[in-house]
Nucleic acid binder design. Sequence first.
DNA 1: ATTTTGACTTAAG
DNA 2: GCTTAAGCCAAAA
Length: 106
Amino acid sequence: MMVTMSSEFYEKIYTILRKVPKGKVVTYGQLARLAGSPRAARAVGTCMRNNPDAPRTPCHRVVASNGSMHGYSGGDGIPTKIKMLREEGVQFKGGRVDLKISQWQP
DNA sequence: ATTTTGACTTAAG
DNA sequence: GCTTAAGCCAAAA
């Protein structure tokens, strides 16, 4: 199998994000860290933006490090994202996700 | 090839 | 606890 050098870490991001169970969320930094680039949190966001609510990439389960969210390219954006997470059983706290109980732990 | 922008994170006030 | 500033990675102009 040949290695896709350019988007190598992108595929990792998708793979990891796909492993995140329902009702759990993951931060951009965590995804980047698991992908092999702990400082590429921004790049992760760029990747998500190009891929909307693709059935293969649950970008709505990706939140910021402090539990809040920065953006979402699907539905109404942020509100839709919150709604989806809430439907999955994610506990919210003043508009922010409770990372203490809802953050995915590999 | 260089500059700008962006779904980020951490540190400091 | 919230706001402001600086740093980092990758894609788009």
